[in-house]
């Protein structure tokens, strides 16, 4: 009973933190576009706060740069349980065009922190991001919350 109640609460209020670990900024503005009245992310109870300490979902955009190798793990450890990591775009998945000889990226991001969902695209359309977050986010958070620590 309590779990079911917690599930409902967890599903209906999701706080999101956006972390750009070295991308081109394209995925970031597509997430900002999600806030616009046309997509209206907040009607689903999802708030983009950019504060890792109150985040349920960490959105990672960008291949991991030199500075982020340790800082990303620090941010991940600061987010409270249950938490879900969503990788947006190709950079966190494979390093995109940057992952070539001579660059200083350390993709994929799953080498550093566990990733729960992936959205490929360079950048993905806002509708694709929205669909993926809604399909994965609420249930994953509820399921993670039910796990015993």
């Amino acid at each position: 009973m309590l779990d079911a109640l917690k599930d409902v609460v967890r599903k209906s209020s999701i706080h999101v933190c956006l972390i750009n670990t070295g991308g081109c900024n394209g995925c970031d503005i597509e997430v900002v576009a999600l806030l616009s009245p046309r997509y209206d992310l907040e009607q689903y109870g999802i708030y983009v706060h950019n504060n890792p300490r109150e985040a349920d979902v960490l959105l990672i955009t960008g291949a991991v740069c030199e500075q982020w190798k340790e800082n990303l793990q620090r941010i991940y450890s600061k987010a409270p349980e249950p938490k879900v990591v969503v990788a947006i775009g190709n950079c966190p998945l494979t390093g995109d065009v940057f992952n070539q000889e001579g660059s200083s990226v350390y993709a994929p991001v799953s080498d550093f922190i566990p990733v729960d969902a992936e959205i490929p695209g360079c950048p993905p359309r806002p509708a694709e991001i929205l669909a993926a977050i809604l399909a994965v986010g609420p249930d994953a958070i509820a399921a993670k919350g039910r796990q015993k620590p």
Binding site: T94, D96, P120, G121, C122
Partner: peptide, 8 residues
Amino acid sequence: INNRGCIR
């Protein structure tokens, strides 16, 4: 095509 790498 590997969607995770494709930049469309």
